[in-house]
Amino acid sequence: MAVPVLTGTPSQAAFDAILRSLSEPGSIRQLPPSPSPEVPAYAMVALALGDIDLGVCVDDDPMHPVALMLRAATGMTITGRDNAQFVVCSNEAVPVGNLLTGTALAPEDAARLTIAVDDLDADGDGAVVLRGPGVPGERRLCVRGLDRKTLLSLGRTSGTFPAGIDTWLVTAEGRIAAIPRSTTVTQGEH
């Protein structure tokens, strides 16, 4: 089995999309194509950023094929959800509580959470409103396929800033938006 790797331009394009999505929360970016059918789009963040010093948890399942693939490709250790630097969820049903949030002195120790969603849109019914650094005024984001309670628990409420969790929402086509820990998420008006 060939180990999927991100090299050269796709690697830089993935890094660029991941970083820009964080710096402009709620804006929708496009990840480069997956290097292999074994790598679903929702695993691209962990594939692009993970390495041997970090732990990964996919769907709370240590034998999940994506977890095994990420371990082979990046050297990451497969760990429990409460101990993982990369928490990857293939669907909205996976619980996302009890993750590492880092501390005021070491905010970098927090988990990076990636959740697969059905669709992302700049607006639409049920859109949430994002505010905070990187958002001029406010930005609306419509997320299909993610429990609303989970969506509202992301961003600023995920920890006591600067502790907290940075989250990426990814569609199967590799469209990606981020809700970093500095972003406030509120209900949009209907």
Binding site: L49, D53, T74, G75
Partner: peptide
Amino acid sequence: STLPRFGY
């Protein structure tokens, strides 16, 4: 700084 560490 962007390169993953595969091993030591």
